[in-house]
């Protein structure tokens, strides 16, 4: 009896938790990003031209501060995210984007890991024992210690 009650409680808690999580994340997000957040997001996606491989948001150099201020100004003027990054791309080329777009020259960067996932999954699936073969010859030797899980 106790266990059945326990399982009911468990399900109830789980469902409530899921409801809270989904409700909170899906329906209670702050409506818009603040201007500051937007500027910061844009700065994070752009490589600092005067620094060593970090974004404008992360660099502590004066140049990065100046550029952050310019981005913030553009945001306040009402420019869209793409217009602002576009301004940087026009001056520095795609080099300034820390995450190349998944098209053109950047395509392989995004496609190869996905191809790797597919190839790996196929390889793992290929290791499954086919029903017609039985090969037990390589079963583990007795030199293996017992483990907790042996059920």
């Amino acid at each position: 009896m106790r266990s059945r009650l326990g399982s009911v409680v468990r399900w109830a808690v789980a469902l409530m938790a899921i409801a809270i999580i989904v409700g909170g994340l899906a329906f209670d997000q702050p409506d818009t990003r603040s201007a500051e957040q937007r500027a910061d997001d844009i700065a994070s996606s752009l490589r600092c031209p005067f620094c060593e491989g970090v974004s404008i948001a992360e660099s502590t150099s004066q140049v990065a501060r100046d550029l952050q201020a310019i981005i913030r100004e553009r945001v306040d003027e009402g420019a869209g995210d793409e217009a602002i990054t576009g301004e940087f791309v026009a001056r520095y080329g795609e080099w300034v984007l820390l995450s190349p777009p998944a098209s053109g020259i950047g395509l392989a960067l995004w496609a190869l890991p996905i191809a790797g996932l597919v190839a790996g999954a196929v390889a793992v699936a290929g290791l499954r024992r086919r029903s017609d073969t039985t090969d037990d010859r390589d079963l583990p030797s007795a030199s293996v210690p017992s483990r907790v899980e042996s059920t």
Binding site: D66, F88, R91
Partner: peptide
């Protein structure tokens, strides 16, 4: 003084 011209010229160093 505010890196505006450097940005316009895409200065890297």
């Amino acid at each position: 003084s505010e890196s505006r011209i450097a940005l316009d010229f895409g200065v890297l160093g």
